[in-house]
Design a protein around this nucleic acid. Structure first.
Lengths: 208, 208
DNA sequence: TCCTTTCGAAACGCTACCGTCGCGTATCGA
DNA sequence: TCGATACGCGACGGTAGCGTTTCGAAAGGA
């Protein structure tokens, strides 16, 4: 820790010179936050303009373009600045409660703002490999907790030993996400969706 | 059937006069097909241009704007022209086979072209209520078969009677779609995904 | 203090695309 | 044949947004 800068450098940014007036980190943060705000408000990354970002951040376009060469780099940097939510604590009292809590965490820990941001990343990552990589990073982080949870209860014999933890997690989280975030199956958007999903997969749907 | 036109009128189109040279239905069809082609090739509706549609359809921009007032109307009409796939026949030999067949039909009956179109509709329906309505129409049609199937096997006592058929369908189709179409959980993209999903939900994951 | 760089503001060039118009030609019904 | 409309073509005006430039002022480091 000899002379570390207080803020981590933005990866894809144009490097700042060492002499002269230093760049305002407050401005950098405000710009990245403004990008995420606007992405959350409007539908996608196509829908936001650099001028709007500057206005929201209280800076000028010049200040933005001094840091990032293109709009794509700017958005990528903003997405990169998103941190994964802190790992939530589970009481480990019962499989059912844990799974339900995990699913509800997907719904509550993720704010509506962040939810819309994730949705936009999903959309735009189609034709933006940089964004696609970022998406993978965010998704993998968020998926890990669920997979670990399944593993935990398999070890304790509460879940079948021959399960693929990832498939179980997918079977629970995917329906929840498509219903909650994408708005599919509107009839299923009830407050007890998490409970119903867990019960369904826990006991199975067959009669034998 | 006195003087019915051979083709159904396009709903939101500017009505064609009764005197003078009639509009070419071939051109109309070529235009709508071109829209869907281009939507499938490029990412979204924003990415396609009216000039490109005209070029692909072998017409001129004038011909397009004589039928639809704006690009939005054009896209909406093209989406409206999509027909639901024919209902597939199931052998009804066993629940397991039927469910697996149903899931595999999701993967095979929907061509890659149509898949991309559906994806784009999903994306653009965010800020286009007209498209959102069309999306609901297409999704509901496609979901019905799965829900009916669950109901069929409930009546025959092979599935639990207290199930919500829609929740079961969602629990099966959603993971498949997110994995197959959206590319999530890349480790799960195996040829036997349908079988594994069905087995997991059929027998349940719990040990008691 | 001086030198270097940043900042905000405003204007600019550029490109892409929408939607319109005019024109000569083609095609239908009466 | 005549009248009315559709057709393709090309050009146009208008708008939006990206990225650049200029300029005076401010703010740090040596």
């Amino acid at each position: 820790m000899t002379s570390t800068s207080p803020e981590a450098e933005n990866s894809a940014a144009v490097p700042a010179p060492v002499v002269g007036r230093p760049r305002s980190t407050a401005a950098s943060n405000a710009i990245l936050a403004a990008v995420l705000d606007l992405v959350a408000e409007h539908g996608s990354m196509r829908a936001i303009t650099v001028e709007a970002v500057a206005a929201r951040a209280g800076t000028s376009k010049t200040t933005i373009y001094r840091r990032w060469a293109t709009k794509e780099e700017l958005v990528a940097a903003a997405v990169e600045s998103i941190k994964a939510p802190p790992a939530f604590e589970l009481p480990h009292e019962s499989v059912r409660d844990d799974l339900i809590r995990m699913l509800k965490a997907v719904r509550t820990d993720v704010s509506p703002r962040e939810r819309r941001i994730l949705r936009c990343i999903m959309i735009d990552s189609e034709d933006n490999p940089e964004l696609a990589a970022q998406q993978e990073r965010l998704m993998t982080e968020r998926r890990r907790a669920g997979i670990e949870l399944v593993r935990y209860w398999i070890e304790r014999g509460e879940l079948r030993a021959d399960l693929d933890p990832m498939l179980v997690a997918a079977g629970l989280v995917s329906p929840l996400l498509t219903i909650q975030i994408y708005g599919h199956y509107p009839h299923l958007r009830t407050p007890d969706l998490a409970e119903r999903l867990v019960d369904q997969i826990l006991t199975g749907i067959g009669t034998r």
